[in-house]
Design a binder for these strands. Structure first.
Length: 367
DNA sequence: TCTGGGGTCCTAGGACCC
DNA sequence: TCTGGGGTCCTAGGACCC
């Protein structure tokens, strides 16, 4: 179970960057609305059950952060500027940023509208040169978009992302191989990619609070307690991450869901919402010339218990009628509706493939 | 304080087949 | 009558990420 030596060699001769736009949605709003600059800006759902998507740094000073319920945010910062997200605008700027990154890196992996990995290995192994190239990239982003970003540079993805988090906003962090242990060891385990609330709690109960604890923990203990992710976490704790950039990947599912402002128990209303959501997912599917073989619905009850029910098709489809029929069927026969009603309804499509794959090549006639 | 919406990946159990 | 092992596919739920 010792790491293969080739892994170490590979790790040392790669330079991966991670770029993270600072408080992206809020920063765009401040860019487009000069009167918002210097104000606490909170972007997110404005309904009674909305949550914060992004808070500007001014708003973070009030303790506001992503995923915080809007109701709480409004209490903590009554004078803030509250706005709905404008995804089309964010996408536009996001594409501009990616075009800048592509000038410097051949391989790029988009994580979200505000984050991307890129590979600078082609600029050679010399850290001084890599540093210069990445600085120039960061300068171009700021000059052309008037927005700041934070950049991390390291021998692998995990460390590059960590680097961009260590110094923000407007940060620049380069993690050289010799610095890895010193940087990682004192960090809380929750800083590791893939350690969320649940895993952090489990690690804490094992007495593993810092990355160093995780690095030195017996592997069999980690595997026993956490399964396969235990092994993976210890690798990361050692600064080892051999995953390569995935490039541009096709999405494997499409879904739309919506949370009602108030719980709904009226069956007709629920059915018409299924129809509305179905039309949207089917529209996305057709717009990208795709077909799906799985239709799924999702229901969340007032107590937050969430269920999904899915059905499979023998052949791929992009027909709104077929999808709607299946979705309504799942709803009518597989979902229990109580007097309490439901708080969320969702429709999803899975097993997605190109529309050209819809029909099996039964006959070789066309050859 | 009361919990969005869009995804990905993993796991476990059951059905089914050989 | 008691009891195989392996493999695949499907479903549902859960953790995690931004």
């Amino acid at each position: 179970m010792s790491p293969r030596p080739s892994a170490v060699v590979r790790t040392l001769d790669r330079w991966i960057g991670h770029l993270d736009m600072d408080a992206f949605f809020a920063a765009v709003e401040q860019l487009d609305h000069p009167e918002y600059r210097g104000c606490p800006v909170i972007v997110g759902g404005l309904g009674p059950r909305g949550v914060v998507s992004t808070a500007s740094y001014e708003a973070r000073a009030f303790g506001i952060h992503s995923a915080l319920p809007m109701a709480v945010a409004r209490r903590q910062c009554p004078d803030g500027v509250y706005v709905k997200p404008r995804f089309l605008r964010y996408r536009e700027i996001s594409e501009h940023v990616r075009s800048i990154v592509r000038r410097y890196a051949s391989a790029i992996e988009t994580i979200s509208l505000d984050e991307a990995f890129f590979d600078l290995s082609e600029h050679g192994p010399d850290p001084t040169e890599i540093h210069r190239v990445a600085r120039s990239l960061k300068r171009d982003v700021q000059a052309e978009t008037k927005l700041t970003c934070s950049v991390g540079l390291a021998p692998n993805r995990f460390l590059a992302k960590l680097g961009s988090e260590l110094d923000k906003p407007d940060g620049f962090t380069m993690i050289a191989p010799d610095d890895i242990r010193e940087i990682l060891d004192p960090l809380p385990v929750s800083q590791i990619w893939g350690v969320g609330k649940v895993t952090a709690k489990r690690l804490t109960s094992l007495g593993l609070l810092r990355v160093k604890d995780l690095r030195l923990a017996p592997l069999d203990l980690l595997v026993r307690e956490l399964g396969s992710i235990g092994r993976r976490l210890q690798q990361l704790a050692n600064g080892i991450d051999e995953t390569s950039l995935s490039g541009e990947v096709d999405s494997k599912s499409i879904s739309r869901e919506s949370t009602y402002s108030f719980d709904v128990s009226d069956w007709d209303e629920i059915e018409s919402e299924v129809r509305r959501l179905t039309a949207q997912v089917a529209g996305s599917l057709q717009a990208e010339n795709l077909v799906c073989r799985v239709v799924r619905i999702k229901v969340r009850y007032p107590d937050f218990k969430t269920i999904t029910r899915q059905a499979q098709l023998d052949v791929g489809t992009d027909s709104p009628h077929v999808i709607e029929t299946l979705a309504l069927d799942l709803l009518r026969h597989r979902v229990r509706l109580t007097d309490q009603g439901i708080r969320l309804l969702g429709v999803g499509l899975g097993a997605i493939s190109e529309a050209s794959a819809r029909q099996l090549p039964l006959s070789p006639d066309w050859l």
